[in-house]
């Protein structure tokens, strides 16, 4: 392959122009309306969870919020990325862009970065909304307690409520939720450089997401060398080798019940996610650089 084009000739300004444009595209496609769904979910369940007496309603609300954040950021990344390349190719806008002194590497990076921007902003908005709703509910609960409890029992009860609301130690967990969504977006980008239809891209990406969450179980069984049939072993080994272990990014649930996430561990997981993003992106570039437009 006499690839004379240097894929690493980078201009930050061009990448920024492309990612800003992608971001603008997604915003003007009213992608943010998707987040309204999240808002409805949180506010709705905030009203709904009042009636639970058996489990701390704030804890339920918090678990709803964190779970929804994880799913929503993933879906948002997936749906935005899946259509990015096919649309530009179909509309032939890609020709006009690549006829400028823009390398395919810059183009791809700009697009992905635009999605990352959108994801970052979305997760930020979701966190703010979530923290806000929890804060309001917290005030309500405390006011309620103050009415019903004697003063000496109040501090302990208030502390229990505080522990069940939004706390700063959740932030690293939320950062890993964002990272997982970015990883899945990069994977989707890779799939969309290979695929000829975005339906294929979306379906495959969903399957990878699901498998990614059970990969750990399969991998550990394989590494432990259980007594499975050879065929099953090969299957599981293939699964372990090919799919990312997405469960490693789900630590926020434990943080929410008070488990401390050591800084080193956070950075290890973050570095691991970063490495995945890098590898998937380079593979996407490899495919895209030789693809017939």
């Amino acid at each position: 392959m006499n690839q004379a084009q240097n894929p690493f000739s980078l201009s930050l300004r061009r990448i920024w122009a492309l990612s800003h444009n992608t971001f603008l595209e997604l915003v003007r496609l009213k992608v943010f309306y998707f987040l309204l769904l999240f808002a409805f979910l949180i506010i709705g369940s905030s009203l709904f969870t009042v009636q639970f007496s058996f489990q701390n309603p704030l804890q339920v609300l918090k678990d709803v919020g964190l779970g929804a954040m994880s799913i929503f950021s993933w879906l948002l990344g997936l749906l935005c990325t899946a259509n990015l390349l096919p649309k530009d190719m179909e509309d032939r806008t890609l020709y006009t862009i690549l006829a400028k002194p823009v390398s395919r590497f810059e183009y791809l990076l700009g697009k992905l970065y635009g999605v990352f921007l959108l994801l970052g902003l979305s997760v930020l908005l979701m966190s703010l909304l979530f923290a806000g709703v929890l804060a309001i509910r917290e005030q309500q609960e405390i006011a309620e307690l103050a009415r019903n409890l004697s003063p000496e029992n109040l501090p302990a009860a208030v502390a229990e409520i505080r522990a069940a609301t939004f706390q700063m130690n959740l932030l690293p967990g939320i950062a890993l939720i964002l990272l997982k969504a970015m990883l899945c977006s990069t994977l989707t980008l890779l799939l969309s450089t290979l695929a000829s239809s975005s339906v294929f891209t979306v379906l495959t990406s969903v399957v990878v997401y699901l498998i990614g969450h059970v990969q750990g179980i399969a991998r550990e069984a394989w590494l432990a060398g259980g007594q499975a049939s050879p065929l099953l072993k090969v299957l599981v080994a293939g699964m372990a080798l090919a799919f990312p272990d997405l469960q490693l990014f789900n630590v926020v649930d434990e943080i929410a019940v008070g488990t401390a996430l050591p800084a080193l561990l956070f950075w290890q997981v973050a570095g691991f996610g970063g490495m995945y993003i890098l590898v998937y992106f380079l593979l996407a570039q490899l495919v895209f650089s030789t693809r017939e437009l």
Binding site: Q3, Q5, A99, V102
Partner: peptide, 13 residues
Amino acid sequence: RRVESRENVGFLP
């Protein structure tokens, strides 16, 4: 095939 070749080009597809 080089990106630089497009530096002084305008294209109307």
